[in-house]
């Protein structure tokens, strides 16, 4: 069921048309990136996919199942197969790091406390934070919080991994480490990974399939290789976006 496909997604906020008829297929086992300038609708699209926002039109297929046709209970069953890393990390600040990572395990599995603790230790070690179980989110740096967010996202072995601006506000070294982790976890768990970002360095480092949004429209989609092969043939907005990053020649 790990293929993810969106068809003709449109979203309005009042009279503002924020997403225009967007279709895309996210490939399993790959890092799929939704890129574009700030305010172009990337996060709104991501929230439409995971059900936090309901689009006015369109379909979101997890495998062959249209997520938007499901009852709330059926949706929750699908959601248990996905992990999400939020821009703000969204760690539960009343819980320790260990409790945060253990939370989905306690809610959705019948594992014993010892098994849960083993899994928590493995997930934290996987993101380079072994031994931090007893700390509270307030005691962590921004980069550490993101890594705990990732550890929580992979606790249940998800089929889908969603990351909203995973390295925004982080120093370049930490940002690259987060990118590497996302890439490694995608390969290890063979997840369908969707990353929303405006950081072209991330796109160059880990992007495989790319969807470029501009003012709520899907202006271009394809592989990273396609994008870099013939820059002059790309839509002018994507060309300008690439050139502004300084990573490709003007």
């Amino acid at each position: 069921m790990s293929q993810l496909r969106i068809e003709h997604i449109s979203k309005w906020f009042g009279r503002q048309h924020v997403l225009h008829d967007i279709s895309f297929t996210f490939q399993p086992g790959q890092v799929n990136m939704i890129i574009g300038p700030s305010g172009c609708g990337k996060t709104v699209l991501l929230k439409c996919i995971v059900g936090l926002i309901t689009p006015e039109e369109g379909k979101v297929y997890f495998g062959d199942i249209n997520f938007l046709d499901l009852s709330p209970e059926e949706k929750r069953n699908i959601l248990r197969n996905l992990g999400m890393l939020f821009q703000s990390s969204a760690l539960f600040d009343s819980m320790t790091v260990g409790e945060n990572v253990a939370f989905p395990l306690r809610v959705f599995t019948q594992q014993s406390e010892a098994e849960i603790q083993d899994r928590v230790a493995y997930c934290l070690e996987r993101v380079g934070l072994a031994g931090t179980q007893e700390k509270y989110p307030a005691q962590l740096s921004g980069g550490m919080k993101r890594r705990v967010g990732l550890a929580r996202a992979i606790a249940l072995n998800p089929q889908y991994l969603f990351c909203d601006e995973p390295n925004s506000g982080l120093d370049p070294l930490t940002a690259r480490r987060i990118d590497e982790l996302i890439q490694e976890l995608t390969e290890e768990f063979h997840t369908t990974t969707v990353v929303v970002t405006h950081d072209l360095k991330s796109v160059m480092d880990m992007g495989q399939r790319i969807l470029f949004l501009y003012e709520g429209r899907a202006e271009w989609q394809g592989s990273k290789e396609d994008m870099l092969r013939e820059i002059a043939a790309l839509p002018s907005n994507l060309q300008a976006f690439l050139k502004a990053s300084g990573l490709v020649r003007a």
Partner: peptide, 8 residues
């Protein structure tokens, strides 16, 4: 949002 995305 994190709770909702977990299916809670």
């Amino acid at each position: 949002d994190a709770l909702e995305v977990m299916g809670i």
